[in-house]
Amino acid sequence: MIAYLLNLATLATIFGILAASLNVLIGYAGIFSIAHAVFFGLGAYAGAQLALQFIPDVLLACLAGGAISAALSLCLALPALRVRGEYFVAASLGLQMMAVTVFSEAHALTGGHGGLVGIPPATLFGADVSGPAPFLVFALAVLGLLLLAVRLLMRGSFGRALMAIRDSESAAEAFGKDVRALKTLAVALGCAMAGVAGALFAFYMAFVNVESFTLEQSILVMAMVIIGGTATLAGPLIGVLLLLLLPAGLSFLPFIPPTQIGAVQQLIYGLAMTLLMIFRPAGIAGGRR
């Protein structure tokens, strides 16, 4: 049981980083991207390749994953600078679809649909941290550091400027804010964090393929942020706990027959989500509206 709980906690931590990264885009910058799984995937492939080809150091993998995702975030930043609202959603959908095709076809880098298998156990400065408990501690430390960084940034002038852009881009521009630079930075920060989460995910799963970086994954992460509460530090984490742990918890229901387990889980899960959105439209941590 302990191993199972550690497993859930580790996945929740990794998805906590991912949801917090999307919160920078959606919650603070007002950029509704549905291509976030792309950057999660880029980080995962970068981390996995680093481990397979060079060294399985999880810290280096996180840095590599973050750097590559940040560098390629320009693909998202460019449309974000030109279009807003539903137009940007459509643009990010295009990016998501294109990336899935690239992930599927770039066999040398991603292993195609077969994915990358046999990712070696994680080390940190030569020490083995692949066990469930050490890996969870490392992942929690990364989450803590990133949340602290987000908190500091969002409470400073960068965060206030981002929120001003979110609330009214024209007004922020009229007040002399460099909207293009701020949006690009916000996208780079959010995508870099997603890349870090991806690298951790690759090590934890020891296998990555395109099925983990699809549109469904992007929508799941967006749901985590919205249900938890946007523009709050705790909201995405609450969303992760709810969306990841609720299905796991439902699998313990003793009265569900084996052949119906998926359908009953989906029904209960859907009902709970609907109730939450009726009674807490701003998300659980988002206060009443």
Partner: peptide
């Protein structure tokens, strides 16, 4: 999905 497979397998093996 791989993620669902990992969570499910962990539960079946450990719980």
């Amino acid at each position: 999905t791989p993620q669902g497979g990992a969570v499910g397998m962990t539960k079946l093996a450990n719980v």
